[in-house]
Design a protein around this nucleic acid. Structure first.
Lengths: 320, 320
DNA sequence: CTGTTAGCGCTTTCAC
DNA sequence: GTGAAAGCGCTAACAG
């Protein structure tokens, strides 16, 4: 086309405020350039760094994120939402859960679009999976506690029902104890994922089993609750009891004492997810359906080494 | 239709995995049932509660959220993103910034869809606005500090350039000081919105002006950085210096000492935004384009009353 | 390379 | 009420 004509058309477009109708384009081309992402909650730790880096990765290629949150970990709610999303014909899909109903799995398989399950490293992924092994991360953290001299390690877990992630973390805990030759402790207490409930659950746990010398919290938010309760009781952490979390929220390092936890490279997860998705959208299947992402034990003050662990029994304190 | 036929068709739909093509439906009906939400960052405090309650409000009415993050507060980046979103013909739009380029404003006005600007209470909204007055919230917080006996109040602000929210908070600070008959202090230091940079900026501020007796942080995250620096220096908060934030993150109450801040009812903001949007989508204009949402001063340990403030000069301490 | 045309899968309208 | 047909605004395929 002549340069001058092109310029005139563009000026007209500008003047009239014309925006190409992507809806029509979608129908005609059978592509929407939308990536649907379904997370359990908009507030989950995943959102902050993961979605940002996923969006930053796919946006230059012209893809937008259609975001949904199930709000619960109920697989039926997830299925409903996935159905609604699939009806909008996204070019690819990201789901953050690892426990799906078989209907959901069939739905996603049938859709024919690339799907990545993110967060955990699913054994038998629907299509692809990007994440870290919850079990292995927990195992290493517990072994880290054992190595620091802790022996009576209990668990404060997020609600386990319908939550495979929590189940896998529990498994890693059991595995590590077994490996260290420590007897498995029945001291498991569950709490919803917020500071106040975690504090209460922690208090109940310590009331029941005052001899506990370390508590593994299956999420940093729970650990913050446990720390708050210790502070209320004027307990010395880690002398009275060590606390460890999992997730490395930004606030973990600012906690008092700074929280020993597992850092998860969520930004890397987002980039990787975006990369395998873009690759799959160009028709290349990735070599590996399972894409592991690093994690790292962050050793901080809340689980400093315990002096003479084997010879000295756990200190006992009157609660309150 | 006959009941039996209906059932047979539905069974067939189920069996074939038929999902109605919403893309085609969109084109034909000229409605997408998508609400586009553009935030500055997926990790902003807005995301956690606001988007969840917005989604929960509009989802039962069949609307899904198309989410975008500008990543920066650059108005040009926002304009680009808004253009891309508008091309997808959302039925309504939510934008979280309050400073928009005039092109952006024109773009949104022309689109003819309901638009709500959320977070601050815009003076001259494009269409509607839901939020609280940043200036008024800051003013009340500063007056609260004055009432508790603090006189030499400085500001640790998130980067102010291109950020109307930060500017308005600064204005509220100035207004309160003027009202209290206190001289305006030039002690303003800026930092990017993260704990580490905030700690450094706070340290620089206190080095420069050791006589400061309270620091207003324009965001809770900055306040956590300031608290971390105080702890590192073994300063007593609030004896050496009081710290106050704005935003009431979940972690504010778990901070040590617990953080005095302003609670913002983000869940209410989400619900209200969803409600006015649904109303507008049914053709009813709301009576008020500006929908204020409550805030509340949370008085906690980091700014406990100062003893004999008027007679006693600010304590001086050697830093380090 | 340019211009034309069929058709994407629905909704809506209008005739029956 | 039910059924047929037009058309939403593009893309893609194909003829010139």
């Amino acid at each position: 086309v002549a340069e001058e004509t092109r310029a005139r058309v563009e000026r007209a477009m500008e003047k009239l405020g014309y925006l190409p109708d992507v809806v029509a384009s979608n129908l005609a081309s059978n592509r929407t350039r939308m990536i649907a992402a379904i997370v359990t909650s908009y507030g989950s730790a995943l959102v902050r760094e993961f979605l940002q880096s996923l969006a930053d990765t796919v946006h230059p290629a012209g893809f937008l994120l259609l975001l949904g949150a199930t709000g619960t970990s109920d697989p039926r709610a997830e299925e409903q939402l996935i159905r609604a999303f699939l009806a909008r014909r996204p070019d690819a899909m990201v789901v953050s859960q690892i426990n799906h109903s078989s209907d959901t799995r069939r739905l996603l398989r049938r859709s024919g679009i690339p799907v990545v399950e993110v967060g955990g490293l699913a054994d038998d992924p629907i299509d692809m999976t990007v994440g870290f092994s919850n079990q292995e991360a927990t195992r290493q953290l517990i072994l880290h506690l054992v190595q620091r001299g802790y022996r009576r390690i209990a668990t404060l877990s997020e609600t386990i029902a319908d939550n495979d992630r929590a189940k896998l973390r529990r498994l890693g805990y059991m595995e590590a104890l077994h490996e260290a030759g420590l007897s498995h402790r029945a001291d498991l207490v569950e709490a919803p994922l917020n500071i106040a409930d975690a504090a209460d659950a922690f208090a109940a746990l310590m009331r029941r089993s005052p001899e506990i010398d370390a508590v593994f919290c299956s999420d940093d938010l729970l650990a913050l609750g446990a720390l708050a309760e210790c502070r209320r009781r004027r307990w010395n952490v880690p002398k009275r009891v060590a606390i460890a979390g999992l997730g490395d929220l930004e606030f973990a390092v600012a906690a008092v004492p700074a929280l020993t936890t597992v850092r998860i490279y969520r930004t890397a997860m987002g980039r990787r997810t975006g990369a395998v998705l873009l690759q799959a959208l160009q028709g290349e299947r990735p070599q590996q359906p399972q894409q592991p992402v690093d994690f790292e034990i962050m050793s901080r003050a809340s689980a400093r080494p315990r002096p003479n662990p084997t010879h000295q029994p756990a200190a006992t304190c009157l609660p309150g």
